[in-house]
Design a protein around this nucleic acid. Structure first.
Lengths: 159, 159
DNA sequence: CAATCACTGATCAGATTGCGCAGAACGACC
DNA sequence: GGTCGTTCTGCGCAATCTGATCAGTGATTG
C-alpha cells in the first residue's frame, strides 16, 4: 500500500499547524517548492480526508467551561445506542461520545462551568430514559493536550 | 462578568466553522457587517483565547490509525505525573492525556493501526517504570464526533 | 520506447489583505 | 445636557495573494 503521506506532506502539515494563517504562496516559499505543488498537495490531503478541515479551534475553558469530565454511561439494552446519541447531541456540554467495549456502554466527554454545573449536566444526561447509570471521572489536569502532529510524522516514516 | 462572546461572535464562529476557507471580506458580506468589524472580532476572539488556532484538523483514521482506545493508567505514587506525561508525549499514538479523579490516575486516548498494533502501543506505554497498570477500553464507534460549536451558542445565550 | 505523473517556473486577471481615517452610534459618567 | 471612550461603518490605497493555465523537464511504468 502506498503511504498515505510522504515527507513533503508532513512538512506541509507541520508548517500549517505552526503558522496556520500563512497562505499557499508563503508556504511554497518556506518549503522551497512551487506554489502549484503546495496547492496540489493540500487538495490531495483534503480529498483523502487526511485533513478534515481548517475550522477554528475553540477552547471551552475560555468560554467559561473550565471543568472537563469523562462520563461512562450504561445503556438499557433495548433501544440501542442511536436514540441515546441523539439525546446526547442535544446537550451542548457533551463534546463527544464513543461506544466502547464492555457491555454496550458509552464514554463521553463533557464540560461544565463548575462542579455544581457539572451536576446539572450529568442530570440532564441521565434524564434520558434509556440511560441506566452514569459514572463520572473528573479531569483534574490536562497532561497532554490533544495533538495529532506526531502521528503524521510516524505515518510518513512507516510508509 | 461580561459575556465572553456575543451574538455576532457566535455567528462569525459558526460561519467560519461551516466554511473555513472564506476570507474576512467574504465573511463580512455574509454577516452584513463592515470588514473591519469582522477583523476586530476575530482578533479579539483569538486574543481572548476563545479561538486557539486555525490549524489543519487531521484525521488519524485517514492516516491508517483506525483503532481508537481509552487507556486508564495507574501510576506509582512516588515520582508524580510529570515524568509519566513526558514519557507519553514521546509516543505519537498517544493523542491526549488527563489526570483524573480516583487515585492519581491518568486517562489517555490512543490510536493504533489495528488491534494487534494496539497491543504494541500499550506495551510501549506500560514499558515505563512509573506505570503500574493499564486498563484499556476500545472505542467501537464514534457516536458523537468532537464538537464545540453548540457550546459557543450556549455561552452567548447564557451571557 | 512511449505514456503517465508530479514538479517547476511563469503568466494573467481578479480578489483579498493590511492599514489608516473620518464620521456616526452607543452607553457610561459627571 | 455635555463629554468621553469604545465600537462600528464605509471608504480608499498599495501590496499581496489566489485560481487557473501552460509548456518544459525529470522520474516511473508497462
Amino acid at each position: 500500500m502506498t503511504p498515505t503521506v510522504d515527507e513533503l506532506d508532513v512538512r506541509l502539515v507541520e508548517l500549517l499547524a505552526a503558522e496556520p494563517r500563512i497562505g499557499v504562496l508563503e508556504a511554497s516559499r518556506r518549503l522551497k517548492v512551487a506554489r502549484g505543488t503546495v496547492q496540489a498537495r493540500l487538495d490531495r490531503l483534503v480529498a483523502r480526508g487526511v485533513i478534515k478541515g481548517f475550522g477554528p479551534e475553540l477552547d471551552p475553558a475560555a468560554l467559561g467551561y473550565g471543568v472537563t469530565a469523562f462520563v461512562t454511561l450504561e445503556i438499557r439494552q433495548s433501544g440501542g445506542h442511536d436514540p441515546v446519541a441523539a439525546h446526547l447531541s442535544t446537550i451542548p456540554e457533551v463534546l463527544e461520545a464513543y461506544t466502547i467495549t464492555g457491555g454496550g456502554d458509552l464514554l463521553c466527554r463533557i464540560v461544565a462551568r463548575s462542579n455544581a454545573d457539572l451536576q446539572r449536566v450529568i442530570d440532564e444526561i441521565v434524564s434520558y430514559d434509556g440511560i441506566v447509570r452514569a459514572s463520572t471521572l473528573i479531569a483534574l489536569a490536562e497532561q497532554l493536550p490533544y495533538r495529532t502532529l506526531p502521528l503524521v510524522g510516524k505515518a510518513a516514516r512507516h510508509g
